[in-house]
Structures are given as C-alpha cells and as structure tokens.
Computed example of a mutant assay.
Amino acid sequence: MSQESLPATVFRGGTTKGIYFTREHLPADRDEWDELLLKTFGSPDPKQLDGIGGSHSTASKAMIISAPEDDDVDVEYLFAQVGIEKPVVDWGGNCGNLTYAVGPYAMERGLVDPETEGGEVNLTLRNENTGTVVEQSVPVTDEGDPQYRGDFRVYGVPGTGARIGSRFLDPAGSVTGSLFPTGNRIDTLSVPGVGEVEASLVDVSSPCVFVRAEAVGMTAAELPKEIDSDPDLLETLEAIRSQAAARLGFVDDASDATAESPGIPKMAVVGEKQPYQSSIGEEVTPDEYDLLARIMSMQKAHHAYSITGSMCTATAALFSGTIPNEFLANDDTDQVTIGHPKGTLTVGVGREGDDVRYTEAARTARQIMHGDLFYLPSQ
C-alpha cells in the first residue's frame, strides 16, 4: 500500500523538540490521531527507528495548532505526549517548553497576522488540554518574521537565541481544578514495596508530586544518567507517582498509572542546596539558585527541567507547609531559581495571598524543518 503524507514542522521549544501540525491537516476523525502519532514517532520501539522520534520523552511530543473559534485568543494548541516503548498517547497535560514555539509556528504558517510593537509580536494562546491562557512575546526581524538569533541562554540548549517570554495566566488547578487537589499541603502515600511516603500534591500549569530526596535515597543533585541507571530507584519513583495519580483520580488503580496516565502527575524530588557538577561540565554553586530539584519525564529523568513542572515547583516552594517550601530559604519573593541537571532556570510567580495570578519564564525556540511527513495508512 502506498504511503500518505501531510505537512509537518519540527520545532525546538526551550529544552524540548516536537512535531507541529496545523489541525486542519489532520484526519477529521479524532479517533485516528493516536495511531497517526504513534506512526509519526515510530512507537512502540525504544529507538523509534521507523519514525521521527528521538528515543527520549523530550523529543517524542506533538503540538496541534489551530486558529481559534472566537476572538478571545489568537491561537489554540493541543499537546500530545507520545510513548516510546509503549503504544500510548497522553493528552492529559501541557508541555511548557514546546509552548514557546507555538507563536513562532503560527506566524511561520500564516495562522496569525499580528502587528509588530517594539520589535516583537504579542500573542495570546490557549492550551486546549488544560484551558490555560498564555501571553507570549515573540521577537521579530525587520521583515516581521520570527527572530531566532539572539544572546539569551537556556541551560540545556547549545548556544544562544532570541528571548521569548511567556506568562501563563491563572495556572492553578490546570487539570484538577485546585492548587492543592487533596486539600492538603502534605499527604502521606502508602506505596507498596516502599512504605509510607510524605508528598506534596500541587497543580500549577501541570500537576506534580514532590518528595524529599532523602525519602527515596537521593540528594537531588544526581545527574540523569545516575537516576536512569538505577532500576530500583526508577521503580520507587514510579510507584510513588502512581499512588499520587490514583489519589488525584487520574486512574482508578495505581497499577494502571504507567499505562493510562504516564505523563501526569509529574514526579519531582527536592533536596538540600549544595554545589554540583552539571551534565554539561559546569560547576553550579548554591548561590546561583534557590531550590535544588530533579524532575522525571515519562518514567525517566528529565535532562534539564520541564517548564510546566518548573512553574509548579516554584509556586509550591512559595507556599508554607509544602515539601518544596522546606528547602527554600526565602519565600518572600516573586521568583524562584531552580538548580537542575543542566544549570539553572528562573520562574516568576505572581501571587496574591493563596491566589496564583500567573507564572512566567523565558525560553528560546527555533524552526528546524518544514515539509511532508510520510506514513503508512492502516490496512
């Protein structure tokens, strides 16, 4: 049977790479999308050899972009996390890093025709997975095209690029409807094979579960290769995450979490500040960051730190009574810098009492290719 094709674009957004589609180019039947995406990325296969995937969760993601049905926003987008070794597509959350390429993609594909103000374009985006609205500022060239060259550095991305700012509005309760979905700032999870583990379950931009590093035999200064090479640790972290998924109602049985809700909640570990060597060979000292943390992505250690996860981490740290707050020296601030495996990441938090008005951070993005994506249709 001959192959079929559709237009697709590869973009790097922040420390993540993904495939972007315009919604009208996908099959009209939404039920066909999962199979199409699995074929696109070459899943299930650990090397994703027969597709365009990068054999890692940060390169096995898709964004579907569309013009809005109303005038409230400029662009709408839908995120999909595509499994690598398992034939699963998780539509449960958002990818903050890839969000930074949504504006540039919409501009490149002619989905928007915005006015330039002061060398940049200001767009309003809506994530369909969570309903979150994002205000995004995209630098432009003299011709009005997205600007990719610049001197802004993102730890985890080679070189520098143009600074793209994104502010996530009213991000609390993105999936569960509540900042603290269980009503508690610390819960005790009974984890088979592990025992009782204290955890903070927080939902800002994306639901996350936070544990103390010492509770799982870590320091939170470990590099991804250390975490991923320890099968017992990976099993422990996933067992905790699975119990949290059940507690949050994402699955009926914790044993189904890896298959049915692999992307959310995200699993994060926080620990005492200390100097450490980054995975790119640079020394990171305690005075360079506020909070030491590591976060997981699809059952493996994230090579840097997810944006939605960082926004949840930073916000959780500013609320007394949470586990992240225990490790933050000063919570009277509107920004938190996280020490992660590649370096640091600063997140701004607009908070009024117990209300989280916004979270924000800056990233870079770059269009890598655009063309025809070929795939074998179902027989």
Results as ranks from 00 to 15, higher is better:
Arg366His: 08
Gly161Asn: 05
Pro104Glu: 06
Ile186Met: 09
Ser297Ile: 14
Leu189Gly: 03
His56Leu: 02
Pro114Lys: 07
Ser174His: 10
Ala199Arg: 08
Lys17Cys: 10
Pro87Ala: 13
Thr313Ile: 12
Arg109Met: 13
Ala221Leu: 09
Glu85Ile: 03
Ile19His: 00
Pro265His: 12
Val102Cys: 06
Asp228Gly: 02
Ile227Lys: 04
Gly13Ala: 02
Ala316His: 15
Ser310Glu: 04
Ala246Ile: 10
Val89Thr: 06
Met267Gly: 00
Pro192Val: 04
Asp331Glu: 12
Gly110Lys: 08
Asp331Cys: 11
Gly161Leu: 08
Gly93Cys: 09
Thr124Asn: 02
Val102Ile: 15
Arg241Met: 04
Leu37Arg: 06
Ser306Asn: 12
Arg357Glu: 15
Glu226Phe: 08
Tyr100Thr: 13
Trp33Glu: 06
Val270Gln: 14
Phe250Lys: 01
Ile264Ala: 01
Ala301Thr: 04
Ala28Gln: 15
Ile65Arg: 04
Ala329Asn: 13
Glu288Trp: 05
Gly177Asp: 04
Gly83His: 06
Glu198Ala: 14
Leu26Gly: 10
Lys225Trp: 12
Thr176Ser: 11
Asp252Lys: 14
Phe41Ile: 06
Thr116Pro: 03
Asp334Gly: 14
Glu352Trp: 00
Asp170Gln: 05
Met1Ile: 03
Ala361Arg: 01
Thr315Gln: 10
Pro68Tyr: 13
Val73Gly: 11
Ile264Met: 04
Gln335Pro: 01
Cys208Leu: 14
Met218Phe: 05
Leu373Thr: 09
Leu373Ile: 07
Val202Tyr: 04
Glu326Phe: 02
Thr333Glu: 06
Leu237Lys: 11
Ala62Arg: 06
Tyr155Val: 04
Glu260Pro: 00
Thr22Ser: 13
Leu123Gly: 06
His302Asn: 03
Ala59Asn: 09
Asp145His: 05
Pro114Asn: 06
Arg363Leu: 14
Gln335Tyr: 10
Asp50Phe: 10
Leu234Tyr: 05
Leu36His: 03
Glu198Gly: 01
Ile280Tyr: 04
Cys312Phe: 13
Arg153Pro: 00
Val269Arg: 07
Ala28Gly: 13
Ser5Glu: 12
Ile368Ala: 01
Thr236Pro: 01
Ala67Arg: 15
Tyr148Asp: 07
Val82Ala: 08
Asp151Trp: 02
Ile186Arg: 15
Lys225Met: 05
Val191Thr: 15
Leu36Tyr: 09
Ser57Leu: 05
Asn122Met: 08
Arg351Pro: 04
Ile64Arg: 00
Gly53Met: 11
Tyr100Ala: 04
Gly348Gln: 13
Lys300Glu: 07
Thr15Cys: 03
Glu282Ala: 12
Val269Cys: 03
Lys225Gly: 00
Leu38Ser: 11
Ile227Gln: 08
